[in-house]
Design a protein around this nucleic acid. Structure first.
Lengths: 137, 137
DNA sequence: TTGCGTGCAAAGGTTTTGCATGGCA
DNA sequence: TGCCATGCAAAACCTTTGCACGCAA
């Protein structure tokens, strides 16, 4: 979270609208640019990267480095994710590339275990499990 | 694992020596290149990438996409990892950057659970848990 | 001899940066 | 009027590829 002053601009609003329209959907910076370009909206690549980076710092957007993709993957997780987090884990199939969303108590116990026994506070927003999906096993 | 015929070359040997000298240590392709360059050894960037990729396919080297690094991270895990796997999980602190090696039964039960209940076969060699280490919590 | 391996350089793709201009407060 | 934000283009990076030559088997 940072404390910079922020100006309300057209680009910032456009990006937020885009993000809020599809919570939980994954996209790359390039896809965002392509979307705006194809809709005749004007928002430069540099600005997309700058805003996205800022939102990640604010904890409003999650950034994943997904293996196999050369580019980073973003996801809108909500402005109040810290208030009532709809925690969701991610599994990525290294063979077909499918990204699976998962709600799972076992992962939550693992988190608790890691924290208690290993003093490591895992952040599910940033963690991706890699492996094989049911179709690729 | 693949079944291509393989020639024994000087570059392949040099790379293997380098890897075996530091099992469990993480490095990027660029670091490998820099090492050889600074030691006057001749092995091209393209070859480093090609051999590394091959070793990952063979399961001898693990490749991680570590958030924060723009480049991929490799680690020598051993030629007989499949015979007596010294399974080791990784936790990466998103604040100080520390990478922690971890042996943990709980993670193994999670793997079993993911497989049985979610039909997802997690690959611990590729998965990194992100979060905060004890010093940064 | 066969065909894999290597080096070089160029290409490809993603993300960052410098700088002048534009626009919110 | 101050700053922050934006756009453009160039730069910086990492990784992959094409091609000709070299070398192991």
């Amino acid at each position: 979270m940072n404390t910079h002053s922020r100006y309300k601009t057209k680009q910032r609003d456009m990006l937020m609208d885009y993000l809020k329209a599809a919570p939980g959907v994954h996209f790359t910076a390039g896809e965002v640019c392509a979307y705006f370009t194809s809709h005749g909206a004007s928002i430069s690549q540099a600005t997309v990267y700058r805003r996205l980076e800022e939102l990640v710092d604010d904890g409003i957007v999650s950034k994943y480095t997904v293996d196999g993709h050369t580019s980073a993957c973003f996801e809108y997780t909500g402005e109040d994710a810290h208030v009532h987090p709809d925690v969701c884990y991610h599994c990525k199939c290294v063979k077909c590339g499918k990204l699976i969303h998962l709600h799972c108590d076992e992962v939550e116990s693992l988190q608790a275990h890691l924290l208690e026994e290993h003093r490591f506070k895992m952040d599910p927003q940033r963690t991706v499990f890699y492996g094989l999906c049911e179709n690729c096993i």
